[in-house]
């Protein structure tokens, strides 16, 4: 079985990679992954785990790379309730908040 996101995160750190962690902190309506779901990201853009059914992972990876660069955490929100406000949507019609944080020494 593939290791879970936190295990993967530690393995990447142990091999010297810079990493960030994305976590689903809130969901509304139908959303594919429950609160607490983790996705580990490393500076190459590789990721492990998921925060949706594949709909927003690309955008979250980009935000994670940004967090690695800036060293600052960020709360992201995705949904389809207001098309103008969201660059990336969830086909299921739900809405999710994702917390992205760099892993620091």
């Amino acid at each position: 079985m593939t290791p879970d996101a936190l295990t993967q995160l530690q393995e990447w750190i142990a091999s010297g990679h810079k990493t960030a962690l994305a976590t689903v902190i809130a969901t509304w309506g139908s959303s594919p992954r429950p609160v607490g779901s983790h996705m580990a990201v490393r500076e190459s853009g590789d990721f492990s785990g998921s925060v949706s059914g594949g709909c927003i992972e690309g955008a979250v990876v980009a935000a994670a790379l940004d967090a690695i660069k800036t060293g600052s955490p960020k709360v992201l929100e995705y949904g389809v309730t207001d098309e103008a406000a969201w660059e990336v949507g969830l086909a299921c019609g739900g809405r999710v908040q994702v917390f992205v944080e760099p892993v620091t020494a």
Partner: peptide
């Protein structure tokens, strides 16, 4: 998340001890 917290968290999970990480 800092590395110390991550390591502690992993060790708690390995020991199957319930815990929570609280984040501002």
């Amino acid at each position: 998340m800092n590395l110390d917290n991550l390591k502690q968290l992993s060790s708690l999970r390995a020991r199957k001890q319930p815990c929570a990480l609280v984040t501002d």
